[in-house]
Amino acid sequence: MSTRKATSMDVLLVEDSAGDVRLTQEAFRNSNLNIRFHVAVDGTEAMAFLSRTGAYADAPRPDLILLDLNLPKMDGREVLARIKANDSLKLIPTVILTTSDAEDDIIFSYQLQANCYLTKPVHLDAFDGLVKSISEFWLNTVKLPQQSHFRKS
């Protein structure tokens, strides 16, 4: 079904909780895809990564962004806004993955055109299942723009 070659996919996880990071990594490990994991612990880092500045000059362009909302320094909501304001970055599917299930946050995120909103389940099994769904869906099922288009000239 997928025309995806066996090249690796890059996922950027923007998450401040180390615990959650590890959990997510573990969960992704269970999926079968060749995924390269990148982590930004706050909004600023995330933006630096995405704009490939400073330390992140060689950073790859992620195929998927998993974004937590409650981040120190630059808040996840702001990151979302910035991503979706950028003509290039907005093409990257940005999935909100957060503990909050507040209606306001949901509305806000979709208004800023988050690609979808997911609440972290409390239970580990459920969490695993969720991550599996995400990777299956966003990295295997959906069509993503060809990376070759975004090569820096």
Binding site: S17, G19, L23, T99, S100, K120, V122, H123, L124, F127
Partner: peptide, 17 residues
């Protein structure tokens, strides 16, 4: 309730792991 969830999730998840 909300803020308690977080650490609780950690505990629960990792113990499960």
């Amino acid at each position: 309730s909300h803020d308690l969830q977080e650490p609780l999730r950690m505990v629960a998840s990792y113990t499960q792991l």
